[in-house]
């Protein structure tokens, strides 16, 4: 086998050379084609943080939130496409602690992302999937969640409440605070 190859190298025929050149140019062309394809598919890796995928989003007049209560609020995803439909509206839980202090929690349970529901009477968040339970302040109360609720950073400007959001919070990418 090696002898034969050695022989061919010594006495290259025209066909032989053409074949090898053909393979080589196609290898180069293949790589050239692969670059945009792979880049397109794995753009998530090329740009891990889509140009500021988190932004400050207004949640309305701060005074609509009653002190001592937790309410469902929804905001429009900052980076929407026209065909997003209802999925562009993202819910979150807003807790007003006092005049100045707000806590805004992501709707997603930290266990597997199901929507947690607030129960005003027992002051608990409960998850309908695997029974994760959280206290009023978002800390884990019971069930399988590995941590407390994901919490948005908040600010109040000109009487308006803002949260920093725009991503689906997961354990590897909790909301930045």
């Amino acid at each position: 086998m090696t002898e034969q190859t050695a022989n061919e190298v010594k006495n290259p025929t025209r066909r032989n050379v053409l074949f090898k050149v053909g393979v080589a140019v196609n290898a180069v062309a293949g790589v050239l084609v692969a670059i945009p394809i792979v880049g397109y598919i794995f753009s998530a890796f090329a740009h891990p943080k889509l140009v500021g995928s988190e932004a400050w989003i207004p949640l309305g007049d701060a005074n609509t939130y009653v002190t001592g209560q937790t309410r469902l609020a929804t905001y429009r995803n900052p980076f929407t496409r026209p065909w997003d439909g209802a999925t562009a509206e993202i819910p979150c839980w807003v807790r007003r602690i006092d005049e100045r202090k707000f806590q805004v929690f992501a709707i997603n349970c930290t266990h597997l992302g199901c929507p947690v529901r607030w129960f005003q009477e027992s002051k608990l968040f409960m998850c309908p999937c695997h029974g994760g339970v959280y206290y009023e302040d978002g800390s884990k109360a019971a069930g399988p969640p590995p941590r407390g609720l994901f919490e948005y950073s908040t600010k109040v400007e000109n009487g308006k409440l803002y949260v920093k959001g725009g991503i689906l919070p997961t354990l590897s990418e909790p909301l930045t605070s």
């Binding site: 209560q69 937790t70 469902l72 607030w118 005003q120 009477e121």
Partner: peptide, 11 residues
């Protein structure tokens, strides 16, 4: 009291 508010406007 144990009677909760049921209106959406009250959560």
């Amino acid at each position: 009291t144990p009677m909760p508010a049921f209106a959406q406007s009250s959560g």
